[in-house]
Design a protein around this nucleic acid. Sequence first.
RNA 1: GCGGGGGUGGCUGAGCCUGGCCAAAAGCGGCGGACUUAAGAUCCGCUCCUGUAGAGGUUCGAGGGUUCGAAUCCCUUCCCCCGCACCA
Length: 911
Amino acid sequence: MESYTTPTRPRVYKQMSQEGYDHTAVEKRWQEAWDDASVYRTPDEVDDPTYVLGMYPYPSGKLHMGHVRNYTITDAYARYRRMCGDDVLHPMGWDAFGLPAENAAKERDTNPRDWTFDCIDTMRGQMKSMGFGYDWDREITTCTPEYYRWNQWLFRRFHEAGLIERRDAEVNWCPSCETVLADEQVEGDDELCWRCDTPVETRDLDQWFLSITEYADELIDAIDGLEGWPDSVRQMQRNWIGRQHGSEVEFAVEGHGSVTAFTTRIDTIHGATFFALAPDHPISEELAAENEDVRRFVEEEADPEGDEPNGVATGLTATNPATGEEIPVFVADFVLSDVGTGALMAVPGHDERDHAFAEKMGVEIKPVIAPEPDDWDGETVPDAPDVSEAAFTDDGVVIDSGEYSGLASETARERLTEDIESAEATTQYRLRDWGISRQRYWGTPIPVVHCDDCGSVLVPEADLPVELPEFINTTGNPLDAAEEWKQTTCPECGGPATRETDTMDTFVDSSWYFLRYVSPGLDDAPFDLDRANDWMPVDQYVGGIEHAVMHLLYSRFVTKVLADEEGLEHREPFTNLLAQGMVQLEGEKMSKSVGNTVSPQRIVEEYGADTARLFMMQAAQPERDFDWSEEGVRSTHRFLARLTDLVEEHKRQFMFWDKDDTDDRDAPDRDEIDDYVADEIDAAVAIAGGEYDDLTFNVALREAQDLVGTLRSYRGHAEPHPETYERGLDVAVRLLAPVVPHLAEELWATLDRDGFVVEADWPTATVDRETVERRRRLVENTREDVRDIVEVAGIEDPERIDVVVAPDWKFDALEIAIDSDADNLISELMGESHIRERGDDAASYGQDLQANREALQETLSGDEEYDALRAASWLIEREFDAPVRVERAADADDSVVRKAEPGRPAIDIVE
RNA sequence: GCGGGGGUGGCUGAGCCUGGCCAAAAGCGGCGGACUUAAGAUCCGCUCCUGUAGAGGUUCGAGGGUUCGAAUCCCUUCCCCCGCACCA
């Protein structure tokens, strides 16, 4: 059979433009068209849309590359889901309260409100120029009374639920920002303010707290169920909550009564040889007043930051409740008042820090736990380990502890906690209640008034919102200076009262904003409960890793409270979370202070939004860091220009082609190369869809870009079959549309398609991914084999290349071998008459199969292999400039056929 | 110290969960070729070693093990990054 065909259609030579396309005009045109058609509106009536959300930005002035990456990811995913037929909710808003607005207002002699709204206008404009498809009818701005009144409303509801406390607290105070910071906002060993890097001080102030600790157990336990979250974020939250199960136990300190200590290792209590108090423990302070040594230590020597454990003997003793022994009491700086109870039983034999301190102070070190012997019978008391040099800190078997000797640590803990009268099983958390008071102006006023008679009184719901007064430019808290605003009357007694001048931490705003998008204009509730129940949770949330603890933990907390108090039927706000990677420049994070930023605006002007988006999405997986590269941007831009040329050229060429003329479609000269391209189009669809589902845009886009490359080769090598070629262009445009929305619309229109590509159907494929991969591997392996032969055999100028597919009986034999579990494969094969009659060939192939029994792999069928190779033969022809003949075994010479196996055709090169 | 993630060819980096099609994707860099007056762009190849027919050899931080078979699974060890931490 003659399978080599000379290209009979004329090749198309045309000068392609190099300068690209007018991205500014294209992008503007489609942004306006989308706007006019409201294509990104999500009507209230839709049922459970796919909720795609990027973390809303703080309006600091201009969009930076991090924003662009964040929002391109959500936009691409939202567009993909939309093309798959989903209703999509993809809103945007502004985290508009916060200190920078106050600072900026002072610098520019304006006010935070005007400055903030200017920034919002700028950034909204930039988002529109990026082509992000948001439902702007759902836009929210947290600094408007329409939004923050619901913070106040929630404050009331939390109060009613008993989740609000006001108490005098030692707080982190930033002297530069003149405000309190949450623990989460104090960074690093140096304890610097997260905003301005000023060293943080402490102050005692009356503060409002949300009782997040009430939800500590659920917050930590439910992390296990957050399977759509990255492990890193889950682990950071677990660490932050820091739950520890242990026991509280009382030690009687001479002259000071019982002092409670917390320990996770009550099994070591018989080895407790001293007792230690934090320098700011009440007893330490009492002792300091009467004992000069203790005073000097507490006030002058204690260094909780240092690595060295320091301490001073108090001369007092404490009674070990397990042994009745009197042990010395120290004040030590390694004991921290905010950990456990600020007092601890020290067991130098089994705790490294206690060990170091005991050595330094000459305290007895006593082993009471031995490593569990390998063949331990569960009863015998092992020998004591040597703990003179180092503590043994693992669990093991209790020794030298009276009736508890011989118990495993775990059992001993239970028994001791039960038996010691003052001991009680307790759980400690690192998590503290969420202090939300900020001594700043630009935030939600805490809806409370202070009355001399009635104390702190909540502002009634009917009087909400408590609106911010005009901004006063002052060094302290502007609300303190707003005298007229501050003076009010008590809602309870009607007497004179003053307003609370603290405002809320802005993390309150962001802890529920994702619910507000559901019903942004609602004026009698923060969100429409029924719709929230339908629409929540957010299906895909995307943002920076810097919010791993604070924002994401607070949002989970608030969601759970709303579930308990307001009937929200969801206890977790975000099903899938993507922590996006950084955009870097030469391996460094882009930052204003380093001065290595790249302006998105400049990129959009120079190359267009589509180029910027495509470059970012194909550069790396979304969760990885990647380097911005101007070269990469240019090359992406050229790709889009080439695609444009391809589509436009096609349009010119086939302007008069009548698609309804079936003669053309069934043109008899449709040949293998057309099949190859048709297969590759299907292949691209099969792979790209799955990759979009997984948010691995880089892989999906590579597939789309490769397809465009294939189409270019197609057009260059042969005259394309019009319908196949056009379908290729059509599919390429649709595969790119989520990332390159403007140009995709333009090309969609050029291809005379109806409607918007945004609303077009995602293409479907007739092959599965596995077949695609097998087919590509077969073609690639075969091409490589031909290259190998040509090179190794030193063939200068091949005259013809024959590729012969293995005979059917070998495919059958392979099939049988894969399915068979018989010991003797040969005899099983020989049971098949059509195999047996192959004689020696069958025996020899059977032996090969037998030898590789375990390694046999499914291949394409013989027909599929033949079709795939025929379709790909043009690639080999092009490369070696020689005709290629793809044949079935029956049509080829026996000596050649013998070498063919399923998945590995015989190759014969004629010189 | 605890927890998490990593160490792959000149570089970046996929593969590892679900062992075999893996000398190992892709990109960059380098080399050769086509096109071009030239450059650029684009396109086609090559880029661990050996080899005159698709082969063989040695590789995936290091060492051991499991298996017919290991970059992939297990153990030990070294190094890097991130988070938490005198946390009782």
